[in-house]
Amino acid sequence: MKFAVVLLAVVLLAGCAADPPAAAPPPADTHGDFVLPADAYAFTLPETGRIDLARELLAGKCMRRLGYAFDPDQARQQIAAGNAHTVTDLGWYGNKRRYGVTDPAIAARYGYHLVNRNLGGTSPAPGFGALTPAMRTALTGTCTREAVTALSPDGVVGEADVVAALGSGSFRDALHDPAVTAAFARWSACMLESGHHYASPAVAGTDFDIDSPHITPAETAAASADVVCKQRTHVLDVWHGFEATDQNGQIARHRTAFAAARSGHDVEMRRVDAVLAAEL
């Protein structure tokens, strides 16, 4: 789960430019995440946390100028804690639950629930206490706009549309690929052996309330069987393999668009780093 962005219809720009700039290699510990080609052009969840912090610090400075109290240290602590929880649950790139539950230990203990059920774990406005109506208006209007503009002059912060479309498109297309659907059928037959009726792993666990604080034995049993069947049928190799191949093909066909996305990512992160260095 990367930035919550509105996925607009994207016209991919074909081109024959040089290869897009190389991204930093994945860290040694990706927190059990799956890595896809799109991730080289996207924001990692730790980067998203830094963007959130920079935006909050800039907005907080604006709020102070308007006469409202803001605690930057509290904002740092809240955002850091929330981001740590998010990375634990969703991985370095946000793909850890892309294919459902895959870790047998997590399935046995938490079922289909996230480990950190209150994902993010921060208040809606880190660094502030309770917001009065006037404070909320100033924060969500004037000060947030000012912060976003400082980070991105065009007023758009986060993942490029072409990158978001790549990730959502390959996932959607995988659900209709014959090799993937055949793997789903094998997984479904495996699940049926233990009494669980799911057409595919994409819908596994949807009959449980993962927002409830209670995790039932039925849920952990289903999730554990889900993981076992994924391993037995190699469905993850097929599913992830399709997406990786599909994304690589799209990137190769639209090099100019992805080079621009990577460049935009790097420019935005330099602005974020400058804000954080100035506000420390």
Rank of each mutant, 00 (worst) to 15 (best):
I106L: 14
Q78M: 05
A69M: 05
Y112S: 02
R76K: 13
A75L: 09
Y110L: 01
G120C: 01
R76F: 07
G111Y: 05
P72W: 00
H85T: 13
V115D: 00
L90D: 07
A108K: 09
V101H: 10
G91V: 04
Y110I: 13
D71K: 15
M63K: 01
G82I: 14
R117V: 06
D89Y: 11
F70H: 03
G67P: 03
A105P: 02
V87P: 00
G91A: 06
R65W: 05
Y68Q: 15
Y68A: 07
G94M: 05
V101R: 01
A84C: 01
N83Y: 02
Y112P: 11
D103M: 06
Q78I: 00
R98D: 08
V101F: 08
G94I: 12
N116C: 14
G94Q: 01
Y93G: 10
Y68F: 13
N118D: 10
R65A: 13
T86K: 10
G67T: 14
L66H: 10
G94L: 12
Y93K: 03
G100I: 06
T102L: 01
A80I: 06
R98T: 04
N116W: 09
G82M: 01
G100M: 01
A81V: 08
L90R: 12
P104E: 03
V115F: 00
R64Q: 08
Y99V: 11
R117G: 12
N116R: 13
W92R: 03
G111S: 00
P104A: 05
K96N: 03
V87W: 08
A80V: 07
L119V: 15
M63S: 02
M63P: 05
Y93T: 05
Q78A: 15
Y112M: 01
N95Y: 03
K96T: 12
N118T: 15
D89M: 03
T86Q: 03
G82Q: 03
R76V: 11
G94P: 01
R76Q: 14
K96D: 06
D73C: 09
I106W: 12
N83M: 15
V101D: 12
L90S: 02
D73W: 07
Q77Y: 01
P72T: 11
G67I: 09
A81F: 15
D89S: 00
H85W: 15
G67Q: 02
Y99R: 13
Q74G: 09
G82D: 03
